[in-house]
């Protein structure tokens, strides 16, 4: 569709979606800007990041270290701020 020389590849006029199935639900916090990443050389497995997570997004892995559930994490950075050893860093994850 061309409008005065400008070409829209995907969108119709007014961004109208004429076909169904274009939207699907996301869990809260699906797209945070930053996600915590654990440095296993510094982590002492004290579980402080786990106890301070407001959204219960941090879970313990089988080897005793901790990981994040990307569906629930909002990227607030409390775990990064509260870690005594600087093992948690906030990084952009695709």
């Amino acid at each position: 569709m061309a409008l005065g020389g400008i070409t829209f590849k995907h969108e119709k006029v007014g961004c109208a979606m004429l076909a169904g199935g274009n939207a699907h639900p996301y869990a809260p916090g699906t797209k945070p800007e930053l996600l915590p990443v654990w440095d296993k050389n510094l982590c002492v497995r004290c579980a402080l990041c786990y106890i301070y997570c407001p959204h219960a997004a941090i879970n313990r892995l089988d080897d005793g270290f901790f990981g994040v559930n990307q569906n629930f994490c909002t990227g607030c950075g409390i775990c990064h701020r509260e870690c005594w050893f600087g093992a948690v860093s906030m990084q952009e994850v695709d």
Partner: peptide, 22 residues
């Protein structure tokens, strides 16, 4: 914190709290 256990009873699936909600 290890003694509190890692079983989670609080379901975060449905709540709409902001970042860093106390």
């Amino acid at each position: 914190a290890q003694f509190l256990g890692f079983k989670e009873h609080f379901l975060p699936k449905g709540h709409h709290a902001c970042q860093g909600c106390g």
